[in-house]
Design a protein around this nucleic acid. Structure first.
Lengths: 188, 188
DNA sequence: TTGCTAACTGGCGGGGTCCTCCGTATCTTA
DNA sequence: TAAGATACGGAGGACCCCGCCAGTTAGCAA
């Protein structure tokens, strides 16, 4: 691949910018057609750059995911491993609850769907960055062994999905996260 | 309304039966058009009996919901209130994970959506039946006060939604439920 | 039994989306 | 600047949801 053509790069950027707004406004099932129209390109061009809907969503949320990864790395050597993990979970929850569609991407991803072959899969990055955080928490006895990053991500995205239609998603998601962390009915 | 006409009742039943299969096969966003075709009625007839998609889903899952309610009532005076609640949660999880679409209905419902005016809203029934169970668990100190049935339902439906695309939804949902019950990182 | 009437029905058309194909415009490189 | 590779976008097919409307039918009354 002898580098991408200049106009292709331009269009890619345009589409991505429009898609961000559109997804923010209409959630994960925003109209690709509408995005193409607003971006002033043909619908085929959108499909060319983003073969599937989830590919587009992935690109849209890439930056946010990166932020979360960076956050995880920052927290990796905090004094209190449990607090660090919880803080990160809160951040993830806030993102997932506010950015409609992020949860949808992560569920498909985490579930190991069709185009998981996509190199820079969001969840893969997340897993890589958060794993140290989780490992420390497990080592310190704050989290039961056997719990994986994927588990945590699924729980949070589940919460985000379930609260999506709620009146106040963010605060409800927080409530549920707290409940999940503390346990609905822990032994003893 | 001088009672429903006989043919209307017949069609209602036909549509419902077909819808059950179709939803089981294609999840919550099965094609209404397809349902109409298979049932041998016009698409308008489907719409007439079930004004919204969620109305149809509600009807489809009404029976299952009733089962869950009955289960809750049976468990209401079990010896161990905690075990009873957990057993019920497991049942709910199993239902939500196996019946694609049930989770979707419950999330919309629990979130207090548009047509919540619908008299026999699924979640309303659930709440009514399960509340005693939860109250006892709270009284016995197994569950923190302030936790509502809606919270529990949202958690479980969230888990179901998040695991929907997973390879083995049922077992994964179970894992996550156990984790949620025990707490990801309970204090002490 | 025989109308009558209101409830019920099904098809049609409009608007929208997704997806694919293919002739054409544009960029890159020599 | 000319040739070739690359990307573009519109047309068209398939599907779906939705509202409307004229025809049909079930159930009530005489």
């Amino acid at each position: 691949m002898p580098v991408q053509r200049a106009d292709a790069r331009r269009n890619y950027a345009r589409i991505l910018a429009v898609a961000e707004e559109e997804v923010a406004a209409h959630g994960a099932d925003a109209s690709l057609e509408q995005i193409a129209r607003t971006a002033g390109v043909g619908s085929a061009t959108v499909r060319r750059h983003f073969p599937s809907r989830s590919a587009l969503l992935q690109a849209v949320f890439r930056e946010r995911i990166e932020n979360l990864c960076a956050r995880a790395r920052d927290l990796a050597d905090a004094a209190d491993s449990r607090a660090a993990l919880l803080e990160w979970l809160a951040a993830l929850t806030a993102y997932a609850a506010s950015a409609r569609g992020l949860a949808a991407v992560l569920t498909q991803e985490t579930a190991g769907d069709s185009d998981a072959a996509h190199v820079d899969a969001c969840s893969a990055k997340l897993t890589g960055s958060v794993d140290p955080l989780l490992r420390r928490a497990v080592r310190d006895g704050a989290v039961a062994p056997g719990v994986t990053v994927a588990d945590l991500v699924m729980l949070v995205t589940g919460i985000a999905l379930a609260t999506e239609h709620h009146a106040d998603p963010a605060s409800e998601a927080n409530r549920l996260l707290a409940l999940t962390v503390a346990g609905v009915s822990p032994e003893r």
